[in-house]
Design a protein around this nucleic acid. Structure first.
Length: 617
DNA sequence: GCCGTTTTCGGCCCGACTGTTTTCAGTCG
């Protein structure tokens, strides 16, 4: 795992990390009562693979249905088990009566007769082998049976050995090149960090784009895929180029100096591997079709499938080349992406919304939200200065004055200092109060055009009490609360804990509410509808933490919160002044959660914000 | 197996690339 702090990337300092590979920690697939969404998704994909082996005798759309169901479960904002308990599994798009009943059986009894019978005669190893790029169900099955690799334990390792011994190339339909491809795949999967955090993916793309820009025939260059949609994590880095010389553009790309090897090279696309076993893909086209290409490769897959379904009903067929009128077979090309959408009778849909969660219907009715932008932000509501408040957590590295000056350059009107509370074990109540008073005084002495608030980020203890006495809470301009311990409490206990914490006086923001650290720590379990209700009632705001490893609230919950009428704040959680530049990653999350300017508190002017603060319950 | 602006039955996105093939299968996005 790569872990680098304070990496300088052009205009901003970012902290980034690669995420541990889930493939390194191969979990054996077992059906049990408390299956997580990830495990269920894996199970449903295994069922799809099993069905695939039946070939022509199997309805291929049944296979696709299982794959879609797997995606649907994986992208849920709450645990499937909880949805089941509420009797709402079939309300999930992609889950019908049949799959819902099989999942129900699993949650009830820890077993599934149906799924077990589908996979009964198949070697468990094949489901491990399908995790290798280039190995689908059929090859996995062939390899597993012919090479007599049956157990899922060490399946990949055993395949590697067989390939080395030349036993793979003897199999029908697999030659030397297939053997080589398998060996490379294994090597890459072993060393692969699964998905990249957004800033790191942006940095890779930035460097490749700089290289491509030197070819004057490359007229337009954009990122594609999840990177363009600003997803929290990115798999492969995809780039589009509009050029007057397709071949020349691909040539330049495959000669990228910082590559490990060229993975593939066609007449319209090429892929390279860069150090870290990261794949970068290039798609080239002429200028006339650039809009269509951008649309196609921005995805998401689900958005495109839904869009094609929508087009088909109008007698149109979509591809990266343009829109084809089915009856006349006439292709219309698009230079600009918004013309592509217009041709379908839709508003241009911002990439962040392209996940097939209602954006096509909204675009049709011209009801897409006017998404928040970085320039709307007038404040950063979570910053840690170097004021020594004697906390057991980390303190900041920049002074209050430096931070205020930085806020001025960002054009902010106000900011909040939200250092962690003084350690509870090292101080008695009087000492905690004294430290808060001293901090208050320090804040009051800052000379800046920017209004500075004296707040704190206070621990929610395991029982839901706060680590600062009530008298201390009232000395602050406002209180932010968050969980920094006992993340594993069950849903009921955690919900009670959070609701108790939110009931203390002067609590205004629940910061990084899920506590997740992408690739390192799962979200806490919480009854979100209940928490939303309390927040709305007590006018407490939920933070979207812009730290790229947190991005918390996640975008799905952002959308749920907005629907529930809850207001949100953005905070960088900066521990050094340059960290305040990370606000853009919070904006990305907010946009993916369909947030408008009105939904985010710190788009308000200082006077409006003051009013909101003072309308305490 | 899922789902409904043509539908409770009959559809279900579309094309590129590779390898092992002589016209296609498998995989990917």
């Amino acid at each position: 795992m790569l872990f680098i702090h304070s990496y300088y990337c052009n205009v901003t300092i970012i902290t980034y990390t690669c995420i541990e590979s889930s493939l390194c920690i191969i979990k054996l697939m077992k059906i049990h009562k408390k299956m997580s969404n990830m495990e269920i998704a894996e199970l449903l994909r295994a069922v799809a693979s099993a069905l695939q082996l039946k070939g022509a005798s199997e309805n291929k759309f049944r296979i696709i249905a299982y794959q879609r169901a797997a995606d649907a479960i994986e992208h849920l904002s709450s645990e499937a088990k909880d949805v089941y308990d509420e009797g709402k599994l079939t309300e999930i798009a992609g889950i019908g009566e049949s799959i819902a009943s099989h999942l129900g059986e699993i949650f009830k009894s820890g077993k599934s007769k149906h799924f077990s019978s589908i996979m009964k005669d198949l070697p468990p190893s094949m489901f491990e082998l399908t995790k290798l790029p280039g190995i689908g169900a059929k090859r996995a099955h062939k390899l597993a049976t012919e090479l007599k690799i049956t157990s899922d334990k060490n399946a990949i390792k055993r395949l590697e050995k067989a390939a080395k011994q030349g036993r793979v190339s003897h199999l029908e339909g697999m030659g030397e090149l297939t053997t080589e491809a398998i060996q490379k795949s294994i090597k890459e999967v072993k060393g692969r960090t699964n998905r990249l955090l957004l800033p790191y993916a942006e940095k890779i793309a930035f460097e490749v784009i700089e290289w491509l820009k030197k070819d004057k025939n490359n007229k337009r260059i954009d990122v594609l895929g999840s990177l363009r949609r600003k997803a929290a994590t990115v798999g492969d880095v995809d780039i589009a180029v509009a050029t007057t010389d397709l071949k020349g553009s691909l040539d330049r790309f495959t000669k990228y100096p910082n590559k490990s090897r060229v993975l593939e090279r066609g007449s319209r696309t090429a892929s390279i591997i860069i150090p870290g076993n990261r794949q970068v893909d290039l798609m080239v086209t002429d200028l006339d079709s650039y809009g269509s290409l951008l649309q196609h490769f921005t995805g998401s897959k689900h958005h495109n499938i839904a869009l094609r379904d929508f087009a088909k009903k109008k007698g149109l067929s979509l591809s990266e080349y343009g829109i084809n009128k089915t009856d006349t077979n006439k292709l219309t090309k698009f230079k600009k992406e918004d013309d592509f959408y217009k041709h379908l009778g839709l508003e241009w849909i911002p990439p962040e919304l392209r996940e097939d969660t209602g954006e096509i219907e909204a675009a049709k009715e011209s009801k897409l939200p006017k998404l928040i932008q970085l320039k709307d932000i007038k404040s950063d509501l979570q910053i840690h200065s170097d004021f020594d408040i004697e906390t057991s957590h980390d303190i900041g590295e920049s002074s209050m004055l430096e931070i205020a000056q930085k806020a001025e350059t960002l054009g902010y009107e106000y900011i909040a200092f939200t250092e962690h509370n003084p350690s509870k074990s090292g101080h008695n109540e009087a000492q905690i109060i004294d430290l808060i008073k001293r901090k208050k005084e320090a804040v009051s002495k800052i000379k800046s055009k920017v209004k500075t608030y004296n707040a704190l980020e206070i621990d929610i203890l395991p029982d839901g009490s706060l680590s600062v006495p009530e008298k201390g809470l009232l000395l602050l301009d406002f209180v932010t609360v968050s969980i920094h311990s006992s993340f594993k409490q069950d849903r009921e206990k955690m919900t009670k804990r959070v609701i108790r914490a939110l009931s203390y006086p002067n609590v205004k923001i629940f910061t990084h509410p899920t506590g997740r650290k992408i690739g390192h720590r799962e979200s806490i379990e919480l009854n979100w509808p209940e928490v939303f209700e309390i927040c709305k009632k007590k006018d407490i705001w939920l933070e979207i933490n812009a730290d790229s490893m947190r991005l918390d609230l996640p975008s799905l919950l952002v959308r749920d919160a907005i629907k529930a009428g809850v207001k949100l704040t953005l905070g960088t959680d900066a521990h050094y002044k340059a960290g305040m530049d990370n606000m853009i990653y919070g904006i990305d999350v907010a946009r993916r959660g369909w947030a408008t300017k009105a939904d985010i508190v710190n788009t308000r002017s200082l006077s409006e914000f003051e009013k909101m603060l003072n309308s305490k319950q």
